[in-house]
Amino acid sequence: MTKPTIRKVHTSLQRQMARPGGRLIVEAESRANQALEGQRDHVFDLLATNIDAIDALCVSRPDDAPTQIYAFASAMVDMAGYLDVPAFFEAAFSLCEIADRMRAADAWSWPSIEVHVRVLRLTLADGGKATPGSERLLEGLRALTAHVPPAG
């Protein structure tokens, strides 16, 4: 076994960030938030398209539907993860989790997917916000997921 080595590294990022100037942190955050806000409507359209695609898979039920559904759900998590849409994010994440668990356990349940689709539509229509109503819906999804043992 070769002996581990430890070295001090001063990165170019450290050198550059140590230079004077730049912008106020509050300003940098505000500009980033504004830039994201400008994409919000477009991203909401894409999220709705993904929900439609999953809905269509629930009807046609092809053999590779579990893989496709996981991919659509994962794409929604990726996009929603940059927006302030906590209820929608949790619903999309829950769909990823339950699809992953059901694939691994070879215990696919279409009703569980269909319930997720309905919750995704409702929370998206509500702007993705966390509300008492969305919390009740998410409680239902958590209970569904708890019934399937974790993968791995």
Partner: peptide
């Protein structure tokens, strides 16, 4: 303050929309 005015950032993501969103954040910084 934060100074990223001399920094080159590499963003890697296979999802075009997520990549654009991340790019927007970095641009804001």
């Amino acid at each position: 303050r934060v100074n990223l005015a001399h920094t080159t950032v590499l963003l890697i993501d296979d999802q075009p929309t997520s990549l654009d969103m991340l790019g927007s954040i970095v641009q804001g910084f």
